[in-house]
Simulated scan of single mutants.
Amino acid sequence: MIVLKNFYYTENHLWLRKIGIYDFCIGITDFAQKEIGEIHLIEFNEKQGVIRKGESWGSVYGINKTFQLIAPCDCKIIEVNQNITIKPSHINTDPYNCWFFILSANISAGEFLTYKEYTQIIK
């Protein structure tokens, strides 16, 4: 199981990579993509703008299960990666480079799980 040390994680198996002062790329973890199985379809909610913590912003459909994308914090979606919907199975081969959204949020790193905390959850 691949878990990268310089990323933040959520209990819902999302990763966040900081790319600016308040901006993050977000995607699903290696653990999540293995649980889902081969990914066939990704649907994003068309709602743009501000998303509240706990709201669904889309779904990932795979052979084994469907995975709801749940917002880890109050945030503003800056960009949606539409390329990932063209060939969603790329997530299965490279989950940490296949991001779903770029979001902006005024949050602290302490709101998310560290590498060590996340590896304890998935054991």
Rank of each mutant, 00 (worst) to 15 (best):
M1A: 09
L4V: 13
K5Q: 13
N6C: 08
N6S: 12
N6Y: 06
F7V: 07
Y9D: 04
Y9N: 05
E11N: 10
N12K: 12
H13R: 06
L14M: 14
W15F: 05
L16S: 03
L16V: 02
K18G: 07
G20D: 12
G20S: 07
Y22M: 11
D23H: 07
D23N: 13
D23P: 03
C25Q: 06
C25V: 07
I26E: 02
I26D: 02
G27Y: 01
I28L: 02
I28E: 00
I28M: 01
T29L: 05
A32G: 03
Q33H: 04
K34D: 14
K34V: 01
E35G: 09
E35C: 10
E35A: 14
G37K: 05
I39M: 04
I39E: 01
I39A: 01
H40G: 15
H40M: 15
H40R: 08
L41C: 06
L41I: 05
I42F: 08
N45D: 15
N45C: 12
E46D: 14
K47W: 10
Q48K: 13
Q48P: 00
Q48F: 14
G49S: 06
V50P: 00
V50L: 10
I51H: 02
R52P: 00
R52H: 09
E55H: 00
W57D: 03
G58D: 03
S59I: 07
V60P: 01
Y61D: 13
Y61V: 15
N64K: 11
Q68G: 04
I70E: 04
A71M: 12
P72L: 15
P72V: 11
D74I: 09
D74C: 12
D74P: 05
K76I: 14
V80T: 10
V80N: 03
V80L: 11
N81A: 09
N83T: 12
N83H: 08
I86L: 13
K87D: 12
P88W: 04
S89I: 13
I91G: 02
N92W: 02
T93A: 10
T93C: 05
Y96H: 08
Y96C: 07
N97T: 08
C98K: 08
I102G: 01
I102L: 05
S104D: 09
A105H: 04
N106L: 14
I107S: 03
S108H: 10
S108K: 11
A109L: 09
A109N: 06
A109V: 12
E111D: 10
Y115C: 13
K116A: 14
E117A: 15
E117K: 11
T119H: 04
T119S: 12
Q120F: 12
